[in-house]
């Protein structure tokens, strides 16, 4: 990950540019009171000052990185690292998407075979129903992540996912009535 690279230079330039965007575009346009605000004839600290201080820290950091542009060991972001972290992120997003919609979809499917009306929102505190999303999404997420790291999907990965999800249900859901497993706070 290290070697003769110009990553310090690029990092420095990126931070300087980001700090300038912050100070001259984002903060002025996205705060109502600016750096100082005049109220009852007196100047007070506005909401823009603190983020501007943050931007100054980023700017100073960027300038120092320019001074360190010839440092002997410079870290580099490689393409395969970008791909790897993108894969992990996608698996997690997919896992939580399954988690979010599996319960309501299961209810809709059940409604096809039942006369009585059903609504997931009313069932989200009912054992079984409330666990569908977490079990399916959680198992998908864990086994998917293991598959990405091990470069193959194995039964061991799926089993690990199932066991981990069941342990989490036992830890968070069974002992506490007031805790909501994902996604039951949102549906």
């Amino acid at each position: 990950m290290t070697g003769q690279s110009r990553s310090n230079l690029y990092l420095g330039l990126f931070c300087i540019a980001f700090a300038c965007v912050l100070m001259f575009i984002w903060i002025p346009l996205d705060t109502k009171t600016g750096i100082v605000v005049k109220a009852r004839g007196k100047y007070n600290i506005g909401d823009g000052l603190a983020p501007t201080v943050a931007a100054v820290f980023v700017l100073l950091g960027g300038l120092l990185m320019l001074l360190e542009r010839n440092a002997t060991e410079q870290s580099v972001i490689r393409k395969n690292q970008l791909k790897f972290v993108a894969s992990l992120t996608l698996v997690i997003i997919a896992g939580f998407t399954i988690m979010r919609f599996a319960g309501p979809v299961a209810v809709e499917l059940t409604k096809l075979f039942r006369a009585e009306p059903l609504e997931y929102r009313l069932l989200r505190a009912t054992a079984g129903w409330k666990h569908i999303g977490f079990i399916l999404g959680g198992t998908f997420m864990i086994s998917g992540l293991i598959a990405v790291v091990e470069r193959k999907l194995t039964r061991r990965a799926i089993l690990t996912g199932i066991i981990a999800v069941l342990v989490l249900i036992a830890a968070f859901d069974l002992p506490f009535d007031d805790l909501l497993l994902p996604p039951n706070g949102d549906v």
Binding site: N8, G61, G62, L64, M65
Partner: peptide
């Protein structure tokens, strides 16, 4: 420099 960026 990296510390300041992290703080910022």
């Amino acid at each position: 420099g990296k510390g300041l960026i992290s703080i910022g």
